[in-house]
């Protein structure tokens, strides 16, 4: 007995819903809800986190990410332009940089800055400077490739139109190509920002004083004292408070862009 494709599709969908429902029921039935609540959602521990998790930890994570991203964006733009340069050595340097920093684990760069710089230069950078450099240098490699692709996605006719109006290459690049390239790369660039938000937690390898705690470090610190996973859950929620709105913003920007494209 053969079924029509449409009927087959309907049956397949029904089966998928059934599997999902059974899995959820089994989980709800067998999970130890009391244990789970105590280990992950202890209200007393949760209450003890405030307000410091917001005023110190969340603030620091946002600050670290922001300075790292700002530096990475500036450096990434320079690298992207170098990679598109007609001067060979600029292209080679940019390629070398991108390959090296894309190939290294971010944590290695953090260690290099946290421990290498004091040894090499005899000075200790402030935490904020170290994060800016380490996070920015790693981010710049990815951002450069994203921006380069964006610049190359701007149609050739745009530069031709600008040049035919008497604009110099520089003006055409600055006022016509780069603004359009940024519209194209805004979604991938925001992804980059989300990745850096999470990478900012690598700052733990530097060892931090209380006022420098970021979300992850703060969560681990409380976990060690309270022996409750609640701190980690709340810290995780704080990351989502940053990243989910970012995704929403991107979606709105994309919708607006569709108008002007």
């Amino acid at each position: 007995m053969s079924m029509s494709p449409r009927r087959k599709g309907r049956v397949a969908r029904g089966v998928q819903y059934a599997v999902l429902a059974v899995a959820l029921l089994l989980f709800a039935f067998f999970a130890d809800w009391v244990e789970i609540q105590q280990a992950f959602f202890d209200p007393a521990v949760a209450a003890s986190l405030f307000p410091r998790i917001l005023t110190v930890a969340l603030k620091n994570t946002v600050l670290y990410t922001a300075v790292g991203f700002a530096f990475g964006l500036a450096l990434g733009l320079v690298l992207a332009l170098m990679k598109l340069s007609s001067v060979g050595p600029y292209r080679w340097l940019a390629t070398l940089y991108i390959e090296v920093f894309r190939g290294l684990p971010a944590i290695l760069v953090f260690v290099a800055f946290g421990f290498g710089v004091p040894i090499a230069f005899g000075t200790v950078f402030p935490i904020l400077t170290t994060v800016m450099l380490a996070l920015g240098l790693v981010g710049a490699a990815y951002i450069a490739e994203t921006i380069r692709a964006g610049i190359q996605a701007v149609p050739r006719g745009q530069v031709e139109a600008a040049r035919s109006l008497g604009m110099s290459t520089t003006w055409a690049t600055v006022s016509i190509v780069i603004p359009q390239a940024f519209r194209i790369v805004l979604p991938p660039l925001t992804n980059e920002l989300i990745l850096l938000t999470k990478d900012s937690s690598l700052i733990y390898v530097l060892g931090l004083s209380l006022s420098d705690f970021d979300l992850t470090f703060f969560g681990r610190d409380v976990l060690n004292q309270s022996k409750s996973m609640t701190a980690i859950v709340v810290a995780g929620a704080c990351y989502l408070i940053i990243t989910v709105p970012l995704s929403l913003v991107v979606r709105r920007l994309e919708a607006r862009q569709a108008l002007t494209r």
């Binding site: 149609p155 006719g157 745009q158 031709e160 139109a161 600008a162 040049r163 035919s164 109006l165 008497g166 604009m167 110099s168 016509i176 603004p179 359009q180 519209r183 002007t260 494209r261």
Partner: peptide, 20 residues
């Protein structure tokens, strides 16, 4: 060349307006 091009208007097949 930029100075001379300001005196020469050009219109393209694909318009090439600046979409942004």
């Amino acid at each position: 060349i930029d100075r001379v091009r300001r005196r020469i208007g050009m219109v393209f097949q694909s318009f090439n307006l600046f979409p942004h």
